[in-house]
């Protein structure tokens, strides 16, 4: 480790600079409709933030904007990642820097196997980071892939299937987490990864996330339901209604939401 910069470890959640910062973020659709109406949020390593909001409140829009989807325009504010303004960057550059989005609705890529896709993605990230071709040796890749698949209880048979093509809802979500485990991002945004999972699958997925959260990774868990938070304990909970964070608090806020629902917040906004 000679010469390497040692990270500054303080108490959990108190890194000097948050890795991901959303500053007064506004996001509009292509027709100009504003969906996200000013979000401020800081997510650091070793932290789990939960964003909880009802359907249609703009959670996926926020996730896409963080990842750089071209159809979701940032009309105001900015996104800072590791001290760098990434607001104008493409999704590829954000991913190469260590941002990850687990999609609510992962897309199928017919003709491209999970293995081939993951190897291409890993090597693209390695190349971007080292500035030269530096592919992961195939035996190492295989060992890592099979190990992660077993850990996440993803059937090995899926490795040679076409990405998300004909996968069940649960398989797709697990493969999203598999991708996260393989790519080892620094901040992972999980957009309703819990929806459509049965309890067993939810446990597996949650433990997959829990294993990665730590000094190397922080997570932003986006959800409609409180259920996933029984398995992934958040440090911070944000209630997200009508494109805004309307209340922030600790894990107890999730319990309050479970009891009272979003209605009281929506009434205030109405």
């Amino acid at each position: 480790m000679c010469g390497a910069k040692a990270p500054v470890f303080l108490a959990k959640g108190t890194y000097l600079v948050a890795l991901l910062k959303l500053e007064s973020l506004h996001v509009a659709l292509e027709d100009g409709t504003e969906i996200v109406k000013g979000v401020d949020l800081e997510v650091g390593l070793d932290e789990v933030h939960a964003i909880m909001g009802p359907n249609g409140s703009g959670k996926s829009t926020l996730s896409y904007a963080i990842m750089g989807h071209p159809a979701y325009a940032i009309t105001e504010g900015r996104i800072v990642f590791d001290g760098e303004d990434v607001t104008e960057m493409g999704a590829d550059e954000r991913a190469q820097r260590g941002l990850f989005l687990a999609f609510q609705y992962p897309h199928a890529i017919p003709g491209v196997t999970v293995t081939n896709f993951l190897r291409s993605a890993i090597n693209a990230v390695r190349k971007a980071r080292s500035g030269k071709d530096d592919p992961m040796p195939i035996p190492e890749f295989r060992k890592e892939l099979l190990g992660q698949m077993d850990r996440l209880k993803v059937s090995r048979e899926l490795a040679s299937r076409y990405l998300n093509d004909g996968f069940s809802g649960g398989e797709k979500k697990r493969v999203e987490i598999l991708q996260m485990a393989m790519l080892k991002p620094r901040i992972a945004v999980l957009d309703e990864t819990d929806s459509g999972l049965d309890i067993d699958a939810l446990r597996v997925v949650a433990s997959g996330v829990n294993e990665l959260v730590g000094p190397e990774m922080g997570a932003l868990v986006i959800t409609h339901y409180q259920r996933i938070l029984d398995y992934i304990t958040p440090d911070h909970v944000h209630v997200f209604v009508g494109g805004r964070i309307v209340e922030s608090g600790g894990p107890e806020l999730a319990k309050k939401l479970e009891a009272g629902g979003y209605a009281p917040y929506e009434e205030v906004l109405a």
Binding site: M67, P70, D92, F117, V125
Partner: peptide
């Protein structure tokens, strides 16, 4: 599809290639 692949770090041309 293109966004999905790029969100994993693949540059546009590589995503398109795949």
């Amino acid at each position: 599809q293109l966004f999905y692949l790029m969100a994993r770090g693949l540059p546009r041309y590589e995503a398109e290639r795949l």
